[in-house]
Design a protein around this nucleic acid. Structure first.
Lengths: 355, 355
DNA sequence: CTAGTTGGTGTAACCGGTTACATCAGGAGC
DNA sequence: GCTCCTGATGTAACCGGTTACACCAACTAG
């Protein structure tokens, strides 16, 4: 038994609540009460216990506590990836929420793979009081099944599912429509679209917004290219666009692809926005620093993360929280990349363009 | 399958190992053995137990397991911040390492505050098998004290401490010296330096590398300005520089500040690199996309994170891992921002500069 | 046919907390 | 002086796993 305990001879035995009790001359119950602020303990006893606990460097065993109290003070988070500015911002918000609620954050990446996500879910299920999961590439139902009601489940940017306790997301459709309208208002047409992965909910909705704005304006949309939300795919799309007659504007379904496209066009000597206007989506920090600064749809990513965690904690405490469906409206952020500065100058030549 | 369990009223009791035992007609010991792959179980019994466990959607209680086994399969991570490209990369590496070792990742930010870091340490101590802590603003000893040998402790970019079990970091001095030498080789002098926070180890070492390279080259260093590693402070430093005679080059102690400085200079019409050359440190993804692309010292951040976690897990398993002191050498990444393209042209004017 | 062995399984102790309930001292009320 | 009450504290059951040890059938060996 407990092989682990005597694993290495020099191993130091944990200080338990019994050790504290013995040293303070009281029972374990009193120690527990003294440290957890139950009022039925003499001031003097409480002080003594606290002093002894500090002296012995006593820290309660989280596992024992969770076994006894049936809670872990931890929220689990599963994201498709942990990489890039978008997720960085999201994680910051998640941490903020966790800190506000005095919870720990257990983090994992699913790498866009549903079976990895479900695997992560299963390991996490028993170690957390609630889960926040982002899984834009699948139906929420699979996740709901995997959690099976064990803990509250909050979905981010995931196709809503009746089984989830709450869902947060961005109003991609409205955001994309706003960007598209802006491009049309500037007089750009046709507008090409660089889309995200076919199975990605955000990507689908953004494309939808793009199309709806065109219908509304009675303008025929430009070509729709397929991307995967990564910079390289924006670059490839840019190359593809260069092979035909260039559109007046390009709207990429996220900033990373807009960036890639910008690279491709610039390398070919195309001037932005003089020859082709450009817009993205997300407003990652980098967008402001591009040359030219990128027009995009701004999403308060961190804020979404914070609210998701706080909602999740609330659900776990039985507090009926605000609406369980929550769509954040992005703001149109107009920067130089989308303005109409079309000039009579010669068509793009390989030597032209910005410095 | 889970149908029955799901619809059973509101209050759903956890499925325990005893429930599985009862349903499979065996004892808890047999269930445990069957599920944990002990060999002394009939194939037939094992199959039946596994089937029943799946049917009941049994997931072992992590707290109970950690109480019994004295391990949590979790590694705790405390970083100064979770925000920005640098930490994003780091977290990605940490996750990679955790995944390789089949561990969970418990994440927290200290916001550069030593007391917050220690608080986080105390809550984590009892929930993890090991800790990876980055705390460039303080002495490692405080952290070592707070952990007090409860679990293995791996430090990142932190002043080494005898009490820590291992330490990883970047050879900031060599990296900064390499960048400085490169700038000098290009013929830039004097070179101004934008430093990081005074109490930050990385910042101190980078400044040291900057100075040493000057001594070595027998060149007098330019002015050293104070920054805080954030973009705004780079911007302020840029404004300050503009008030006097501009140096030939500016070396910012990290890329974020280089970026801020670039903004300030560009707004004043200073051309980079024609009027002033610029270099940073870290090689965050953004560096390649600046205009002009930024010369910097490349650090394999994710790789450091991965190794730190894997080392931490190894220590917990009693495996004596590689050297406990580990400095990664950055690579000099030369891009356009630092080249000598000085021209006879007129001194910077508000209307000059890049597009 | 008995004694010894072996392999599968069950029983119960243990991990370290929390807390319902028991206990006990001391003061109030009669 | 005795009972009753009250408030501080102790005892032990419980949370849900793991595993040492006991047990027992079925077999082998003598």
């Amino acid at each position: 038994m407990q092989e682990a305990a005597r694993r290495s001879g020099i191993e130091r035995r944990r200080v338990t609540i019994r050790d504290v009790g013995r040293a303070a001359g009281v029972s374990v119950a009193t120690v527990s009460r003294a440290l957890n602020g139950s009022e039925s303990v003499t001031l003097e006893t409480r002080a003594r216990v606290q002093r002894v606990a500090k002296e012995l460097d006593f820290v309660p065993h989280a596992g024992a506590q969770s076994l006894s109290l049936q809670r872990t003070d931890t929220i689990g988070v599963i994201l498709p990836d942990l990489h890039g500015e978008y997720f960085s911002e999201l994680i910051r918000g998640l941490d903020l929420g966790a800190r506000n609620c005095r919870r720990n954050l257990l983090l994992s990446a699913s790498h866009g793979d549903i079976s990895e996500a479900i695997g992560a879910l299963r390991t996490m299920r028993s170690r957390v009081d609630g889960l926040v999961v982002m899984s834009p590439f699948t139906d929420g139902d699979l996740l709901v099944d995997a959690v099976n009601g064990a803990v509250p489940l909050v979905l981010l940017s995931t196709r809503a599912s009746a089984g989830a306790d709450a869902a947060f997301g961005v109003d991609n459709r409205a955001g994309a429509a706003a960007v598209t309208r802006h491009l049309l208002d500037e007089g750009h047409r046709p507008i090409a679209f660089i889309g995200g992965p076919a199975d990605n909910l955000d990507a689908q909705e953004r494309l939808r917004g793009f199309r709806e704005a065109h219908v509304e304006a009675r303008v025929k949309p430009g070509p729709v290219l397929r991307g995967n939300f990564r910079e390289e795919s924006g670059f490839s799309a840019g190359l593809l666009l260069l092979q035909k007659r260039l559109p007046d504007a390009v709207f990429a379904a996220n900033d990373a692809m807009a960036l890639g496209c910008l690279q491709a066009l610039r390398e070919a000597g195309v001037r932005i926005p003089e020859d082709v206007a450009l817009a993205g989506f997300d407003d990652i920090p980098l967008a402001r620093f591009l040359d030219p600064p990128l027009t995009t749809a701004g999403v308060r990513i961190a804020e979404i993360g914070r609210q998701a965690v706080e909602c999740c904690v609330g659900l776990g405490e039985g507090r009926a929280t605000a609406p369980t469906q929550n769509l954040f409206a992005p703001t149109l952020v107009v920067r130089a990349s989308s303005l109409n500065r079309r000039r009579a100058g010669p068509p793009p030549s390989p030597t032209g363009g910005t410095t």
